[in-house]
């Protein structure tokens, strides 16, 4: 039983490490600021999530696990706030995102002809 728990926590920690590194690689590889945010959010969600899960499995049922869960909840609730604030600040500062397709105008027109059926 303890071996199975150990194995599960190792797998979680390895996966978490993998996603952390992948997110950081994306942070360097992506061409501009909006796409970099997507890479950073991989770290904030899966990387941190798996690492915390792995450490919680190691700690077992204890105060440490509760603290780790608080840490995870902190990331889940504050991560989007920071990302959203950052994206909004970029737009307000006049940084235009590099786009393949801008579907905003199309969508607005489609909704007008479609009416508000929803």
């Amino acid at each position: 039983m303890t071996f199975a728990l150990d194995l599960a926590s190792w797998v979680c920690i390895l996966l978490g490490s993998f996603f952390v590194v992948v997110g950081a690689v994306g942070l360097v590889r992506m061409p501009e600021v909006f796409t970099r945010m997507h890479a950073a959010s991989v770290i904030d969600t899966l990387g941190v999530g798996f690492l915390v899960l792995g450490m919680a499995l190691q700690a077992g049922l204890s105060l440490i696990t509760l603290k780790l869960l608080f840490l995870l909840a902190l990331f889940v609730f504050t991560g989007p706030v920071v990302t959203h604030a950052l994206a909004q600040a970029c737009l307000q500062d006049g940084i235009a995102p590099m786009l393949d397709a801008d579907r905003r105008a199309d969508r607005a027109a489609a909704e007008q002809t479609e009416g508000r059926r929803s």
Binding site: P31, F34, T35, P97, D100, A101, D102, R103, R104
Partner: peptide, 8 residues
């Protein structure tokens, strides 16, 4: 292979 898109 990214294709950044804005939508509403």
């Amino acid at each position: 292979p990214i294709s950044p898109t804005m939508t509403v």
